[in-house]
Design a protein around this nucleic acid. Sequence first.
DNA 1: AAATTTAGTTATACTTTTGTAACCATTTAA
DNA 2: TTAAATGGTTACAAAAGTATAACTAAATTT
Lengths: 162, 162
Amino acid sequence: MSEGDKNTIDSVIENLISIYPLLSKSFTRSIRIKTNLNPGSLFILRILDRNGILSMSEIGCKLSMPKPHVTAQVDKLIVENMVERLVDPSDRRIVNIKLTKKGKIDFESIKVQISHEMRQSIETLDEYKVKTLFESSSQLREILSEIMTENNHLQQTCFKQL
Amino acid sequence: MSEGDKNTIDSVIENLISIYPLLSKSFTRSIRIKTNLNPGSLFILRILDRNGILSMSEIGCKLSMPKPHVTAQVDKLIVENMVERLVDPSDRRIVNIKLTKKGKIDFESIKVQISHEMRQSIETLDEYKVKTLFESSSQLREILSEIMTENNHLQQTCFKQL
DNA sequence: AAATTTAGTTATACTTTTGTAACCATTTAA
DNA sequence: TTAAATGGTTACAAAAGTATAACTAAATTT
């Protein structure tokens, strides 16, 4: 690897370390204020919305969330009637989770709620910047999803890939 | 605003909501394992490294961190001899914070520590993807920094811009 | 000079997240 | 058919972040 590549990677790390708190502050506060959910259970809604059905362990793997925490968060979502547990007939130890109809509808409106300020900010940008924002966020998301597939290390190794 | 723009913004929000947990999980765990600091105090180091000297309030504004939390985190960093308090001679209410020499050195090595896994992952990517990652993270960082300048709402309004 | 505002700290309570250990039920392996 | 491994839950502890009120000291306003 050349010296230039090394510097490029340094810059990437710098950028990511800067982006993280910007996103964090933008979302977590909206989530707390505008929903009665916490960020963790919202993450679970998001991956269920994307993946359909996931087992408890798969949720924990995808979110690097300890299994006891997954249980607690899913319990909350069940109380809210946003997800449901499904016993896997082929292996009755496995508990599969999926969004309910209410969960799907609620998640859509929550997304609108928590991104309201950010949406307004983005709308003030000129067309070119919005396009740049779209492309850069798409690319970053894709590559990060690709490389962030390492296992978690929580009570047991997580073998299944994201 | 056209329907296409609205969809583009929706996609941007989707992307950002996806990127956030990926970054979060990648950094916070490394920080906890590899340093004796918490993410919050590391954020403070980062903005001090970038901005030089900042007052307590400015730190709180930039990080959307409640002032009492800033005090607590800075206290920790002072115990570690990584930052120092400087009384502002023109206004003796203001407490300015800057990195010590040790703080600068430590921060550099901490950055290497906490980004080690991510760096290794990035190194496995081909040259084109690294370039894409660099460009997209740079662009995203720049635009997010630009739009995430809203005030915090913690005990008092934060007027100064980031 | 008195009243108000601002910067920061202290104290305190609460929420969220992380982590470990122990446990049950089920499946797989010996 | 025992023994071991796996998926998940329960219980519990601790770290980290969030929030508000009350306070001191200094600056500003009136």
